[in-house]
Design a protein around this nucleic acid. Structure first.
Lengths: 178, 178
DNA sequence: CAGCGCATGTAAGTGGTTACATGATTCA
DNA sequence: TGAATCATGTAACCACTTACATGCGCTG
């Protein structure tokens, strides 16, 4: 149950409309909790009904007109509570590892190309994260706690991608030329 | 759409009943693609209707009225095709990273305990994987391709857990004593 | 004023989770 | 015989995905 909290976090960082949120999810929060615009609109409706956020007063609330949302104190309290909640990590879901295990049974024919493709994707993502790190977290900006925490989040993304790049590289080596 | 393929893989490794599959998912395949017994029974039904597996005629029921399934050639072909399929990696879903980002906004009160708890869980999982590695993949058993592939899968689990242990250790250091 | 992009939504279908139901065997 | 356990399932719900629908504002 993390989507509402992802949205609350994003709205606290900057009040936004549904579509703006969608865009920001595509390039920032979505790196570790993705969501489509349909999910976001539905969740915005729920959060509003729950009294956690409110739409900023618009002249005429009509379909097709942008609605900007901001977080209410209740929403901030909810998010604050969630940060300290005990919530077990979900078991990982790695389809590639599954495919590798299937390949051990039925043979690895055709797997090599797919591994290469994934390797390129993860290398690209890693490069993007490293750019963000250079741009947003220069050494002199690492003093305040919020900055240190945000940097930790980014390091999580970086190390995850690095893991995949290394694992895929090793796997391609093991597979040989096929 | 990986659950059916996870089941096909497991059944090729060893024909099983629904409950046996559930147990094996809990301690093996489920490490990277978990499933409950309800999911498994539903999926077994679908796979049987699709002609990918069949129930063996029970010779002498050992316990209860179990149904043992085995994979048909069509199922093996389906799995073989899936191994080579182009399927993009799903974006990661890391609730802990999300919570860390929320903490950057509303404060990290109470987060430390939760990070410690997760650290212990991941350390335990890592230890379990390392035991499996020692037991199932001694150096002299790494020659055949199936063994090498299965070992790669395990290495994926090991390195993932190692990532979390390191990230959490670093995060606890950054958070300070609170 | 027609067409296009922006913005907000609805609807249907799938996969996964939680809670419950039912029969069959074992054993005290 | 009654309780515990093994084994297979059903039902309801929720999250997420995919496809489509509707209204607004700008521009040619």
């Amino acid at each position: 149950m993390s989507l509402p909290h992802a949205i609350l976090t994003a709205l606290l960082e900057k009040p936004s409309s549904g579509l703006e949120l969608t865009r920001r999810f595509d390039r920032s929060i979505g790196y570790f909790w993705s969501a489509t615009h349909q999910q976001i609109y539905r969740e915005l409706g729920r959060l509003e009904r729950a009294g956690h956020i409110r739409a900023l007063p618009a002249p005429v609330p009509v379909r097709g007109r942008r609605k900007e949302y901001e977080v209410l104190p209740e929403g901030r309290a909810e998010l604050s509570a969630w940060v300290a909640t005990a919530e077990d990590p979900r078991p990982m879901r790695a389809a590639l590892l599954l495919r590798m295990r299937a390949a051990a049974v039925v043979g690895a024919a055709g797997l090599r190309a797919e591994l290469s493709r994934h390797l390129a994707l993860h290398q690209a993502q890693l490069a993007e994260y490293l750019e963000i790190e250079v741009r947003d977290f220069p050494v002199e900006r690492r003093g305040t706690e919020p900055d240190r925490l945000r940097h930790l989040v980014l390091r999580g993304g970086i190390e995850t991608e690095r893991f995949w790049v290394e694992w895929l590289t090793g796997a391609l080596g093991e597979l040989g030329a096929e």
